[in-house]
Write a protein that binds this DNA or RNA. Structure first.
Length: 540
DNA sequence: ATTGCCGGGAT
DNA sequence: ATCCCGGCAAT
Protein backbone atom coordinates (compact mmCIF):
# COMPACT_ATOMS: atom_id res chain seq x y z
CA UNK A 1 0.00 0.00 0.00
CA UNK A 2 1.29 3.35 -0.86
CA UNK A 3 1.31 4.96 2.43
CA UNK A 4 3.59 7.66 1.42
CA UNK A 5 1.50 8.85 -1.36
CA UNK A 6 -1.63 8.90 0.65
CA UNK A 7 0.07 10.59 3.44
CA UNK A 8 1.58 13.41 1.64
CA UNK A 9 -1.66 14.92 0.85
CA UNK A 10 -2.73 16.05 4.22
CA UNK A 11 -2.51 19.55 5.35
CA UNK A 12 -3.92 19.00 8.77
CA UNK A 13 -1.55 20.01 11.39
CA UNK A 14 0.50 22.04 9.08
CA UNK A 15 1.68 25.40 10.06
CA UNK A 16 0.41 28.08 7.85
CA UNK A 17 0.69 31.77 7.50
CA UNK A 18 -2.41 33.76 7.76
CA UNK A 19 -3.06 37.35 7.03
CA UNK A 20 -2.85 39.54 9.98
CA UNK A 21 -6.22 40.37 11.42
CA UNK A 22 -5.08 43.82 12.22
CA UNK A 23 -4.02 44.38 8.75
CA UNK A 24 -0.62 45.59 9.71
CA UNK A 25 0.88 43.24 7.29
CA UNK A 26 2.68 41.03 9.73
CA UNK A 27 1.50 37.55 9.06
CA UNK A 28 0.57 35.23 11.83
CA UNK A 29 1.19 31.60 11.97
CA UNK A 30 -1.27 28.97 12.86
CA UNK A 31 -1.82 25.31 12.61
CA UNK A 32 -4.44 23.88 10.39
CA UNK A 33 -6.95 22.04 12.47
CA UNK A 34 -9.41 21.07 9.88
CA UNK A 35 -10.49 21.72 6.43
CA UNK A 36 -13.95 22.67 5.49
CA UNK A 37 -14.90 22.00 2.02
CA UNK A 38 -17.52 24.29 0.74
CA UNK A 39 -19.02 22.39 -1.99
CA UNK A 40 -21.08 23.63 -4.76
CA UNK A 41 -23.62 25.11 -2.50
CA UNK A 42 -21.48 28.12 -2.19
CA UNK A 43 -21.26 29.01 -5.76
CA UNK A 44 -20.07 32.48 -5.22
CA UNK A 45 -16.69 31.40 -4.08
CA UNK A 46 -16.25 29.16 -7.00
CA UNK A 47 -16.25 25.43 -7.16
CA UNK A 48 -14.77 23.48 -4.30
CA UNK A 49 -13.63 26.31 -2.23
CA UNK A 50 -11.81 25.34 0.93
CA UNK A 51 -11.90 26.93 4.27
CA UNK A 52 -9.28 26.02 6.78
CA UNK A 53 -9.75 26.08 10.46
CA UNK A 54 -6.55 27.42 11.77
CA UNK A 55 -5.53 27.40 15.33
CA UNK A 56 -3.77 30.64 15.83
CA UNK A 57 -0.94 31.34 18.13
CA UNK A 58 -3.13 33.19 20.46
CA UNK A 59 -5.33 30.22 20.81
CA UNK A 60 -8.16 31.38 18.70
CA UNK A 61 -9.65 29.39 15.95
CA UNK A 62 -10.12 31.18 12.75
CA UNK A 63 -11.23 30.25 9.36
CA UNK A 64 -9.33 31.22 6.35
CA UNK A 65 -9.98 30.60 2.80
CA UNK A 66 -7.58 28.83 0.65
CA UNK A 67 -6.29 31.99 -0.81
CA UNK A 68 -5.55 33.63 2.42
CA UNK A 69 -3.11 31.23 3.87
CA UNK A 70 0.08 29.75 2.84
CA UNK A 71 1.86 26.77 4.10
CA UNK A 72 5.19 27.62 5.45
CA UNK A 73 7.00 30.29 3.55
CA UNK A 74 6.35 28.87 0.21
CA UNK A 75 2.95 29.79 -0.95
CA UNK A 76 2.99 27.96 -4.17
CA UNK A 77 3.75 24.65 -2.75
CA UNK A 78 0.98 25.06 -0.35
CA UNK A 79 -1.76 24.78 -2.83
CA UNK A 80 -1.17 21.25 -3.77
CA UNK A 81 -1.42 19.71 -0.37
CA UNK A 82 -4.15 22.02 0.60
CA UNK A 83 -6.39 21.04 -2.13
CA UNK A 84 -5.71 17.43 -2.10
CA UNK A 85 -6.24 17.05 1.54
CA UNK A 86 -9.88 17.67 1.24
CA UNK A 87 -10.95 14.14 1.44
CA UNK A 88 -9.10 13.56 4.59
CA UNK A 89 -10.93 16.05 6.60
CA UNK A 90 -13.76 14.91 8.68
CA UNK A 91 -14.69 18.38 9.62
CA UNK A 92 -16.69 18.72 6.53
CA UNK A 93 -20.35 18.20 7.11
CA UNK A 94 -19.87 18.17 10.77
CA UNK A 95 -19.21 21.76 11.37
CA UNK A 96 -21.69 21.93 14.15
CA UNK A 97 -20.46 18.98 16.01
CA UNK A 98 -18.20 19.34 18.90
CA UNK A 99 -14.66 19.93 17.86
CA UNK A 100 -13.42 17.21 20.04
CA UNK A 101 -15.58 14.69 18.48
CA UNK A 102 -14.59 15.46 15.02
CA UNK A 103 -11.04 15.70 15.94
CA UNK A 104 -11.19 12.32 17.37
CA UNK A 105 -12.01 10.85 14.09
CA UNK A 106 -9.68 13.13 12.44
CA UNK A 107 -6.93 12.30 14.76
CA UNK A 108 -6.83 8.77 13.68
CA UNK A 109 -6.50 9.79 10.16
CA UNK A 110 -3.94 12.14 11.35
CA UNK A 111 -1.81 9.28 12.34
CA UNK A 112 -1.53 8.38 8.79
CA UNK A 113 -0.40 11.81 8.06
CA UNK A 114 2.43 12.04 10.40
CA UNK A 115 4.79 11.29 7.67
CA UNK A 116 3.43 13.92 5.54
CA UNK A 117 4.13 16.36 8.22
CA UNK A 118 7.70 15.61 7.84
CA UNK A 119 7.49 16.11 4.19
CA UNK A 120 5.67 19.34 4.55
CA UNK A 121 8.01 20.45 7.17
CA UNK A 122 10.83 19.90 4.90
CA UNK A 123 9.35 22.50 2.68
CA UNK A 124 8.42 24.76 5.45
CA UNK A 125 11.84 24.94 6.81
CA UNK A 126 12.96 26.43 9.99
CA UNK A 127 11.76 29.89 9.31
CA UNK A 128 8.14 29.32 9.83
CA UNK A 129 8.75 27.40 12.93
CA UNK A 130 10.70 30.03 14.66
CA UNK A 131 8.08 32.61 14.26
CA UNK A 132 6.16 30.93 16.98
CA UNK A 133 5.84 32.71 20.23
CA UNK A 134 6.11 31.26 23.66
CA UNK A 135 2.93 30.00 24.99
CA UNK A 136 1.28 31.91 27.70
CA UNK A 137 -1.84 31.60 29.75
CA UNK A 138 -4.85 31.94 27.55
CA UNK A 139 -3.33 30.00 24.80
CA UNK A 140 -2.81 27.09 26.99
CA UNK A 141 -6.40 27.02 27.97
CA UNK A 142 -7.54 26.84 24.53
CA UNK A 143 -5.14 24.41 23.20
CA UNK A 144 -6.05 21.99 25.85
CA UNK A 145 -9.05 21.08 23.85
CA UNK A 146 -7.10 20.08 20.89
CA UNK A 147 -7.01 16.45 20.22
CA UNK A 148 -4.19 14.49 21.61
CA UNK A 149 -3.09 12.93 18.47
CA UNK A 150 -3.18 16.15 16.76
CA UNK A 151 -0.76 17.31 19.30
CA UNK A 152 1.47 14.43 18.85
CA UNK A 153 1.55 14.82 15.20
CA UNK A 154 2.31 18.43 15.41
CA UNK A 155 5.04 17.90 17.80
CA UNK A 156 6.61 15.35 15.67
CA UNK A 157 6.39 17.49 12.70
CA UNK A 158 7.36 20.73 14.21
CA UNK A 159 10.04 19.90 16.62
CA UNK A 160 12.19 17.43 14.88
CA UNK A 161 14.53 18.11 12.20
CA UNK A 162 14.64 15.13 10.06
CA UNK A 163 17.35 15.36 7.55
CA UNK A 164 16.68 13.35 4.50
CA UNK A 165 19.77 11.37 5.03
CA UNK A 166 18.28 9.88 8.07
CA UNK A 167 15.28 8.55 6.42
CA UNK A 168 16.58 5.24 5.43
CA UNK A 169 15.73 2.74 8.04
CA UNK A 170 13.63 4.54 10.46
CA UNK A 171 11.41 5.94 7.92
CA UNK A 172 10.71 2.59 6.53
CA UNK A 173 9.86 1.44 9.96
CA UNK A 174 7.70 4.36 10.49
CA UNK A 175 5.89 3.72 7.34
CA UNK A 176 5.15 0.24 8.37
CA UNK A 177 3.98 1.29 11.71
CA UNK A 178 1.95 4.02 10.26
CA UNK A 179 0.39 1.78 7.77
CA UNK A 180 -0.44 -0.66 10.44
CA UNK A 181 -1.97 1.98 12.57
CA UNK A 182 -4.07 3.32 9.83
CA UNK A 183 -5.34 -0.01 8.90
CA UNK A 184 -6.00 -0.85 12.45
CA UNK A 185 -7.94 2.25 13.00
CA UNK A 186 -9.92 1.66 9.93
CA UNK A 187 -10.96 -1.70 11.05
CA UNK A 188 -11.62 -1.03 14.66
CA UNK A 189 -14.32 0.66 16.49
CA UNK A 190 -14.20 4.39 16.75
CA UNK A 191 -13.33 4.30 20.38
CA UNK A 192 -10.87 6.88 21.33
CA UNK A 193 -7.53 5.45 22.00
CA UNK A 194 -5.72 8.04 23.88
CA UNK A 195 -2.12 7.92 22.94
CA UNK A 196 0.36 7.87 25.70
CA UNK A 197 1.75 11.17 24.79
CA UNK A 198 1.54 13.61 27.54
CA UNK A 199 -0.63 16.39 26.44
CA UNK A 200 0.85 19.07 28.53
CA UNK A 201 4.29 18.38 27.32
CA UNK A 202 3.16 18.45 23.83
CA UNK A 203 1.38 21.64 24.30
CA UNK A 204 4.30 23.25 25.85
CA UNK A 205 6.53 22.13 23.14
CA UNK A 206 4.19 22.87 20.44
CA UNK A 207 5.01 26.44 19.82
CA UNK A 208 8.08 27.34 21.64
CA UNK A 209 10.13 24.29 21.51
CA UNK A 210 11.68 23.49 18.28
CA UNK A 211 14.47 21.31 19.37
CA UNK A 212 14.05 19.24 22.44
CA UNK A 213 10.98 17.82 23.97
CA UNK A 214 9.78 15.00 21.99
CA UNK A 215 12.37 12.64 20.83
CA UNK A 216 10.83 10.05 18.68
CA UNK A 217 12.74 7.20 20.01
CA UNK A 218 12.88 4.74 17.22
CA UNK A 219 10.14 6.64 15.63
CA UNK A 220 7.77 5.70 18.28
CA UNK A 221 7.43 2.27 16.99
CA UNK A 222 8.47 0.71 20.19
CA UNK A 223 8.27 3.65 22.45
CA UNK A 224 4.85 4.51 21.43
CA UNK A 225 3.38 1.19 22.11
CA UNK A 226 5.46 0.27 24.97
CA UNK A 227 2.86 0.92 27.55
CA UNK A 228 1.19 -2.33 26.94
CA UNK A 229 4.22 -4.36 27.62
CA UNK A 230 4.60 -4.15 31.35
CA UNK A 231 0.98 -3.77 32.12
CA UNK A 232 0.37 -6.74 30.04
CA UNK A 233 2.72 -8.80 32.04
CA UNK A 234 1.57 -7.78 35.39
CA UNK A 235 -2.00 -8.04 34.51
CA UNK A 236 -2.84 -11.23 32.83
CA UNK A 237 -6.48 -10.45 32.87
CA UNK A 238 -6.05 -7.53 30.64
CA UNK A 239 -8.88 -7.66 28.26
CA UNK A 240 -7.39 -9.07 25.23
CA UNK A 241 -9.64 -8.58 22.34
CA UNK A 242 -8.40 -10.97 19.84
CA UNK A 243 -10.90 -9.79 17.40
CA UNK A 244 -9.01 -6.71 16.75
CA UNK A 245 -6.09 -8.81 15.96
CA UNK A 246 -8.43 -10.70 13.94
CA UNK A 247 -9.14 -7.85 11.72
CA UNK A 248 -5.67 -6.66 12.02
CA UNK A 249 -4.04 -9.73 10.83
CA UNK A 250 -4.80 -9.61 7.18
CA UNK A 251 -3.14 -6.31 6.96
CA UNK A 252 -0.13 -7.51 8.69
CA UNK A 253 0.43 -10.26 6.31
CA UNK A 254 2.28 -8.37 3.69
CA UNK A 255 4.82 -7.24 6.15
CA UNK A 256 5.39 -10.70 7.34
CA UNK A 257 5.95 -12.17 4.02
CA UNK A 258 9.35 -10.84 3.71
CA UNK A 259 11.94 -11.37 6.30
CA UNK A 260 10.26 -10.36 9.47
CA UNK A 261 10.81 -6.70 9.28
CA UNK A 262 11.44 -5.62 12.74
CA UNK A 263 10.97 -6.86 16.15
CA UNK A 264 9.06 -3.82 16.99
CA UNK A 265 6.45 -4.65 14.51
CA UNK A 266 5.68 -7.95 15.96
CA UNK A 267 5.76 -6.72 19.43
CA UNK A 268 3.66 -3.85 18.63
CA UNK A 269 1.28 -6.05 16.93
CA UNK A 270 0.59 -8.04 19.98
CA UNK A 271 0.56 -5.08 22.16
CA UNK A 272 -1.73 -3.13 20.08
CA UNK A 273 -4.19 -5.83 19.85
CA UNK A 274 -4.19 -6.21 23.53
CA UNK A 275 -4.79 -2.61 23.91
CA UNK A 276 -6.62 -1.62 20.91
CA UNK A 277 -10.07 -2.75 21.26
CA UNK A 278 -11.57 -3.45 24.59
CA UNK A 279 -14.86 -4.20 22.99
CA UNK A 280 -14.67 -7.07 20.64
CA UNK A 281 -16.72 -6.86 17.60
CA UNK A 282 -18.37 -9.64 15.87
CA UNK A 283 -17.15 -10.66 12.56
CA UNK A 284 -18.63 -13.00 10.19
CA UNK A 285 -15.86 -15.21 9.24
CA UNK A 286 -14.13 -15.16 12.49
CA UNK A 287 -11.96 -18.15 12.81
CA UNK A 288 -8.53 -16.83 13.38
CA UNK A 289 -5.40 -18.18 14.79
CA UNK A 290 -3.44 -16.37 17.36
CA UNK A 291 -0.39 -17.45 19.22
CA UNK A 292 -0.28 -17.19 22.92
CA UNK A 293 2.80 -17.26 25.00
CA UNK A 294 2.48 -19.79 27.71
CA UNK A 295 5.26 -18.48 29.80
CA UNK A 296 4.25 -17.76 33.29
CA UNK A 297 2.69 -14.40 33.75
CA UNK A 298 3.24 -13.52 30.20
CA UNK A 299 0.30 -14.52 28.17
CA UNK A 300 1.34 -12.46 25.28
CA UNK A 301 -0.71 -13.02 22.25
CA UNK A 302 0.66 -12.43 18.85
CA UNK A 303 -0.81 -13.04 15.55
CA UNK A 304 2.10 -14.65 13.91
CA UNK A 305 4.06 -17.69 14.78
CA UNK A 306 7.20 -15.93 13.87
CA UNK A 307 6.41 -13.19 16.24
CA UNK A 308 5.66 -15.37 19.15
CA UNK A 309 8.69 -17.44 18.53
CA UNK A 310 10.80 -14.43 18.47
CA UNK A 311 9.14 -13.16 21.56
CA UNK A 312 9.82 -16.33 23.43
CA UNK A 313 13.29 -16.64 22.13
CA UNK A 314 14.31 -13.20 23.05
CA UNK A 315 12.26 -12.42 26.06
CA UNK A 316 12.02 -15.73 27.82
CA UNK A 317 14.80 -17.84 26.52
CA UNK A 318 17.15 -14.96 26.51
CA UNK A 319 18.56 -15.69 23.16
CA UNK A 320 19.53 -12.90 20.99
CA UNK A 321 20.29 -14.67 17.84
CA UNK A 322 17.82 -14.45 15.10
CA UNK A 323 15.48 -17.11 14.00
CA UNK A 324 18.08 -19.13 12.26
CA UNK A 325 19.61 -20.47 15.36
CA UNK A 326 16.36 -21.42 16.89
CA UNK A 327 16.30 -24.98 17.99
CA UNK A 328 12.59 -25.08 18.09
CA UNK A 329 12.38 -24.80 21.77
CA UNK A 330 10.10 -21.87 21.49
CA UNK A 331 7.51 -24.18 20.18
CA UNK A 332 6.96 -25.51 23.60
CA UNK A 333 6.12 -22.23 25.09
CA UNK A 334 3.39 -21.00 22.94
CA UNK A 335 0.24 -22.39 21.72
CA UNK A 336 -2.08 -21.64 19.00
CA UNK A 337 -5.35 -20.07 19.89
CA UNK A 338 -8.21 -20.33 17.61
CA UNK A 339 -10.61 -17.58 18.07
CA UNK A 340 -14.15 -17.99 17.21
CA UNK A 341 -16.53 -15.20 17.68
CA UNK A 342 -19.53 -17.15 16.76
CA UNK A 343 -21.60 -18.54 19.44
CA UNK A 344 -20.14 -21.35 21.35
CA UNK A 345 -22.66 -23.74 20.06
CA UNK A 346 -21.82 -22.81 16.58
CA UNK A 347 -18.23 -22.89 17.43
CA UNK A 348 -18.14 -26.46 18.40
CA UNK A 349 -19.87 -27.74 15.41
CA UNK A 350 -18.22 -25.53 12.92
CA UNK A 351 -14.95 -26.21 14.45
CA UNK A 352 -14.46 -29.82 13.90
CA UNK A 353 -13.65 -29.66 10.24
CA UNK A 354 -11.14 -26.99 10.83
CA UNK A 355 -9.05 -28.29 13.57
CA UNK A 356 -9.75 -31.69 14.86
CA UNK A 357 -7.16 -31.74 17.55
CA UNK A 358 -8.27 -28.66 19.19
CA UNK A 359 -9.70 -29.70 22.38
CA UNK A 360 -7.58 -29.67 25.41
CA UNK A 361 -6.06 -26.27 25.87
CA UNK A 362 -2.66 -27.52 26.73
CA UNK A 363 -1.27 -30.94 26.63
CA UNK A 364 -1.50 -32.59 29.97
CA UNK A 365 1.08 -31.66 32.52
CA UNK A 366 2.66 -35.00 32.48
CA UNK A 367 3.90 -34.32 29.09
CA UNK A 368 7.56 -34.72 29.40
CA UNK A 369 8.34 -32.73 26.36
CA UNK A 370 7.05 -29.61 27.84
CA UNK A 371 9.71 -28.44 30.10
CA UNK A 372 9.12 -25.83 32.67
CA UNK A 373 10.85 -22.60 32.03
CA UNK A 374 13.65 -23.32 34.37
CA UNK A 375 16.33 -21.07 33.11
CA UNK A 376 14.20 -18.05 33.54
CA UNK A 377 15.23 -15.17 35.65
CA UNK A 378 16.19 -16.30 39.10
CA UNK A 379 14.13 -19.40 38.70
CA UNK A 380 11.66 -18.65 41.37
CA UNK A 381 10.84 -21.92 42.90
CA UNK A 382 7.15 -21.80 42.36
CA UNK A 383 7.37 -21.70 38.68
CA UNK A 384 7.42 -25.27 37.88
CA UNK A 385 4.08 -26.47 38.89
CA UNK A 386 2.69 -23.26 37.76
CA UNK A 387 3.62 -24.01 34.30
CA UNK A 388 1.62 -27.10 34.21
CA UNK A 389 -1.35 -24.96 34.85
CA UNK A 390 -0.62 -22.86 31.94
CA UNK A 391 -4.00 -23.49 30.58
CA UNK A 392 -5.44 -21.76 33.53
CA UNK A 393 -3.70 -18.73 32.32
CA UNK A 394 -6.10 -18.65 29.56
CA UNK A 395 -9.03 -18.36 31.80
CA UNK A 396 -8.68 -14.70 32.36
CA UNK A 397 -8.58 -14.42 28.70
CA UNK A 398 -11.78 -16.16 28.22
CA UNK A 399 -13.26 -14.42 31.13
CA UNK A 400 -12.61 -11.13 29.63
CA UNK A 401 -14.29 -12.04 26.45
CA UNK A 402 -16.86 -14.55 27.31
CA UNK A 403 -18.54 -14.51 24.01
CA UNK A 404 -15.56 -15.69 22.15
CA UNK A 405 -14.73 -19.27 21.92
CA UNK A 406 -11.18 -19.83 22.72
CA UNK A 407 -9.65 -22.92 21.46
CA UNK A 408 -6.08 -23.54 21.97
CA UNK A 409 -4.70 -25.74 19.41
CA UNK A 410 -1.76 -27.70 20.52
CA UNK A 411 0.00 -28.17 17.32
CA UNK A 412 2.83 -30.35 18.28
CA UNK A 413 3.26 -33.48 16.43
CA UNK A 414 3.51 -35.73 19.37
CA UNK A 415 -0.01 -35.00 20.28
CA UNK A 416 -1.45 -36.25 17.10
CA UNK A 417 -2.00 -39.85 16.68
CA UNK A 418 -1.15 -41.72 13.64
CA UNK A 419 -3.56 -41.79 10.82
CA UNK A 420 -6.34 -44.18 11.15
CA UNK A 421 -5.77 -47.20 9.14
CA UNK A 422 -8.38 -49.73 8.70
CA UNK A 423 -6.89 -53.00 8.11
CA UNK A 424 -9.11 -55.69 6.88
CA UNK A 425 -8.14 -58.96 8.20
CA UNK A 426 -8.35 -62.12 6.27
CA UNK A 427 -8.98 -61.84 2.58
CA UNK A 428 -5.39 -62.46 1.81
CA UNK A 429 -3.66 -59.40 0.48
CA UNK A 430 -5.79 -56.46 1.08
CA UNK A 431 -5.25 -54.57 -2.05
CA UNK A 432 -4.93 -51.22 -0.47
CA UNK A 433 -6.91 -48.36 0.85
CA UNK A 434 -9.11 -48.11 -2.14
CA UNK A 435 -11.27 -51.00 -1.23
CA UNK A 436 -14.54 -49.60 -0.09
CA UNK A 437 -16.07 -52.70 1.17
CA UNK A 438 -16.80 -51.22 4.54
CA UNK A 439 -19.24 -48.41 3.98
CA UNK A 440 -18.63 -45.28 5.90
CA UNK A 441 -15.49 -46.28 7.55
CA UNK A 442 -12.73 -45.88 5.10
CA UNK A 443 -14.12 -42.89 3.35
CA UNK A 444 -14.00 -40.72 6.37
CA UNK A 445 -10.35 -40.97 7.00
CA UNK A 446 -9.25 -38.66 4.31
CA UNK A 447 -11.29 -35.75 5.30
CA UNK A 448 -10.52 -32.61 3.48
CA UNK A 449 -11.86 -29.48 5.02
CA UNK A 450 -13.34 -28.28 1.87
CA UNK A 451 -15.40 -25.43 3.13
CA UNK A 452 -12.84 -24.02 5.42
CA UNK A 453 -11.11 -21.77 3.02
CA UNK A 454 -7.42 -22.17 2.90
CA UNK A 455 -6.39 -23.96 5.96
CA UNK A 456 -3.43 -25.90 5.01
CA UNK A 457 -3.50 -28.01 8.06
CA UNK A 458 -2.73 -31.48 7.08
CA UNK A 459 -4.16 -32.83 10.16
CA UNK A 460 -4.02 -36.33 11.21
CA UNK A 461 -7.17 -38.16 11.56
CA UNK A 462 -8.79 -38.14 14.92
CA UNK A 463 -7.59 -40.71 17.29
CA UNK A 464 -10.82 -42.04 18.52
CA UNK A 465 -10.92 -45.57 17.47
CA UNK A 466 -13.29 -48.16 18.58
CA UNK A 467 -11.80 -51.47 18.60
CA UNK A 468 -14.47 -53.62 17.34
CA UNK A 469 -14.87 -56.96 18.93
CA UNK A 470 -11.73 -58.47 17.82
CA UNK A 471 -13.05 -60.93 15.42
CA UNK A 472 -10.08 -62.95 14.68
CA UNK A 473 -11.86 -65.46 12.64
CA UNK A 474 -9.09 -67.62 11.53
CA UNK A 475 -7.03 -67.25 14.50
CA UNK A 476 -3.82 -68.84 13.63
CA UNK A 477 -1.26 -69.14 16.30
CA UNK A 478 1.58 -68.65 14.05
CA UNK A 479 4.04 -65.98 14.83
CA UNK A 480 3.75 -64.60 11.38
CA UNK A 481 0.30 -63.44 11.98
CA UNK A 482 1.26 -59.95 11.11
CA UNK A 483 1.33 -56.83 13.06
CA UNK A 484 -2.02 -55.42 12.35
CA UNK A 485 -4.70 -55.39 14.85
CA UNK A 486 -7.74 -57.12 13.71
CA UNK A 487 -10.56 -54.91 12.73
CA UNK A 488 -10.09 -51.60 14.29
CA UNK A 489 -12.89 -49.51 13.20
CA UNK A 490 -12.25 -45.85 13.10
CA UNK A 491 -14.96 -43.46 13.82
CA UNK A 492 -14.68 -39.84 13.11
CA UNK A 493 -16.17 -37.79 15.79
CA UNK A 494 -15.88 -34.09 15.92
CA UNK A 495 -14.36 -33.54 19.34
CA UNK A 496 -11.76 -36.15 18.97
CA UNK A 497 -10.27 -36.24 22.37
CA UNK A 498 -13.39 -35.76 24.32
CA UNK A 499 -13.50 -39.42 24.99
CA UNK A 500 -9.86 -39.51 25.70
CA UNK A 501 -9.71 -42.67 27.66
CA UNK A 502 -11.36 -44.52 24.89
CA UNK A 503 -8.46 -43.88 22.69
CA UNK A 504 -6.55 -46.39 24.66
CA UNK A 505 -7.43 -49.86 23.88
CA UNK A 506 -9.27 -51.41 26.67
CA UNK A 507 -7.22 -53.87 28.47
CA UNK A 508 -7.39 -57.33 27.17
CA UNK A 509 -8.70 -59.82 29.58
CA UNK A 510 -7.44 -63.01 28.25
CA UNK A 511 -4.08 -64.62 28.42
CA UNK A 512 -1.15 -62.87 27.07
CA UNK A 513 2.18 -64.10 26.05
CA UNK A 514 3.65 -62.91 29.20
CA UNK A 515 1.21 -64.78 31.29
CA UNK A 516 1.34 -67.85 29.25
CA UNK A 517 5.04 -68.14 28.83
CA UNK A 518 6.25 -66.07 31.64
CA UNK A 519 9.14 -63.75 31.69
CA UNK A 520 11.63 -66.56 31.49
CA UNK A 521 10.34 -67.64 28.14
CA UNK A 522 10.25 -64.32 26.68
CA UNK A 523 11.57 -65.53 23.40
CA UNK A 524 8.42 -67.47 22.95
CA UNK A 525 6.28 -64.43 23.07
CA UNK A 526 4.83 -62.91 20.10
CA UNK A 527 6.79 -60.06 18.78
CA UNK A 528 4.26 -57.56 19.89
CA UNK A 529 4.45 -58.77 23.39
CA UNK A 530 8.16 -58.67 23.26
CA UNK A 531 7.97 -55.16 22.11
CA UNK A 532 5.43 -54.31 24.67
CA UNK A 533 2.87 -53.82 22.08
CA UNK A 534 -0.58 -55.20 22.01
CA UNK A 535 -0.41 -58.87 21.97
CA UNK A 536 -1.31 -60.41 18.72
CA UNK A 537 -1.33 -63.95 19.68
CA UNK A 538 -3.90 -63.96 22.37
CA UNK A 539 -6.21 -61.37 21.21
CA UNK A 540 -9.42 -61.17 23.05
C1' DA B 1 1.93 -53.96 42.64
C1' DT B 2 1.06 -56.10 38.27
C1' DT B 3 0.04 -56.08 33.61
C1' DG B 4 -1.17 -54.46 28.86
C1' DC B 5 0.31 -51.58 25.61
C1' DC B 6 0.79 -46.72 23.65
C1' DG B 7 4.00 -43.57 22.15
C1' DG B 8 8.25 -42.75 20.88
C1' DG B 9 13.36 -43.34 20.76
C1' DA B 10 17.27 -45.87 18.88
C1' DT B 11 19.28 -48.42 15.32
C1' DA C 1 11.40 -51.61 9.59
C1' DT C 2 12.72 -53.55 13.77
C1' DC C 3 13.61 -53.47 18.47
C1' DC C 4 13.27 -51.57 22.89
C1' DC C 5 11.53 -49.05 26.79
C1' DG C 6 9.24 -45.23 29.69
C1' DG C 7 5.26 -44.55 31.48
C1' DC C 8 0.19 -44.52 31.70
C1' DA C 9 -3.88 -46.82 32.84
C1' DA C 10 -6.47 -50.76 34.00
C1' DT C 11 -6.59 -54.32 37.09
Amino acid sequence: MHTRRLVKRSILGSRVYTPSPTGDGAPLTGVVQAVKQQENRDVSTGPRRNVYMVLMQDGSLKEFSEDEIAVGFNQTTAKGPLRSSLKQSSWNGRGNGSPLQSQTTEARKGEANSLSQEAVKGERGADGRRTGRPLDGPERDHTRSVSLLEQKRKVVSSSIDVPHVRKSEEEVDMEKVTAAMVLTSLSTSPLVRSPPVKVSECLNNLWKDSGGGFTPSSYSSRGYWSWSGPSDQSNPSTPSPPLSADSFKPFRMPSINGPPPDDAIDEQDGSSLLFDEPIPRKRKNSMKVMFKCLWKNCGKVLSSAIGIQRHIRTVHLGRNCDSDCSDGEEDFYYSEIKLNTDSVADGLSSLSPVSPSVLSPIPPPNDRHRRPPAEGSNGSSGNKENHSHAHSNTTPLSRSAPSALYLIHADHAYQATSPVTIPFTGSGSDSGPGSDSAPGSAASTSFTPSSSSNFSISWQSPPVTFTGTAVSPTHSRTQSFGEQRPQTIAVLSSPPRATGSLSRKSRGEGKKCRKVYGMENRDMWCTACRWKKACQRFTD
